[in-house]
Amino acid sequence: MNDMTAIVTKPKDWETDQEVRWCPGCGDYAVLKAVQRTMPELGVKPENTVFVSGIGCSSRFPYYMETYGFHTIHGRAPAVATGVKLANPELDVWIITGDGDALSIGGNHTMHLLRRNLDCQVLLFNNEIYGLTKGQYSPTSRVGTRSPSTPFGSVDRPANPCAFALGSGARFVARGIDVHKNLVSVLKAAHAHKGASFVEIYQNCIVYNDDVFAGFTDKKAAPAKQLWLENGKPMLFDGGAKGLALDTAALTLKVVDVEGGDWAGAGVIVHDETNRSVAHMLVEMPSDAFPVALGVLYRSPAPTFESAVVAQNAQAAKGKTADLQKLISAGQTWQVEKEPHTI
């Protein structure tokens, strides 16, 4: 870690010889490319990088990254990654997961990983569907989603990944879009954050849920429906014609028109990425009346789990010597000199 020589890699260095087997047109390809483009910019070594995944389309990801990789079992990637990081905190750990993997079968582990603040990057590919099992609705599917298991439409309300992350105590919450150029900068920010960095990536499933995000990802819709947040900058969208202001009476956000660039006059608020309350409002904005908040929604570093464990282990061991013979001879003991009982 203290090696001062710059580590120079090219995106190509992060590709394996394995044939990528996602469906043609799958958003996963774009995310893979974005990650492979991001890695050289981080100045990290492939051998110190570990990709851990669960089960699902996205979880095939580690096979395509020329790093160490562990394709684990459904929902358990956060737990495996916790063991990896506690065993060797020097490793740079990325978790690749999906909406079903992270929020359904693995929801418990996701919550605890975030609350503990393990230093790693969690990339949640949200396509609002179970792809690998052929199209059942997922915990993020919208009400009414027709699927093989819900032929009359799903009736349960969806989970909101970023709201879940914030509620779990995440200290870094961001959003990106599979094909959007900004994904690289979001990934870089996630990597730069020390602690659990949660990134929801809207990922299009071309086979089972095509265009489910078109309402805000379509070229035409994008300006009015995408709000890219930047710390210290006003929350503007639609080419600066609109912004978010605080409705102080209702204690919610509201969309306001900005005339002549006078965002301050319109009451548009400045993004303070350490403001947890505003982050909650940003992730809860209803999609019909509001844009989708993207980029780094919340970032407020806190001590990481593995550093606390390492520090406590060191503190507890301080001044003690590891003498195994002494350890097993501890407690109240007695010496038998010779066989005392003769018959």
Binding site: A79, T82, G83, K85, H112
Partner: peptide, 21 residues
């Protein structure tokens, strides 16, 4: 290093992760 995990599955999965590392 001991780790009290969130459930039995995480307990074994973390041990597997540690072995891997």
């Amino acid at each position: 290093t001991t780790f009290q995990a969130e459930d039995e599955i995480a307990a074994v999965a973390s041990a597997i992760g540690a072995s891997y590392a």
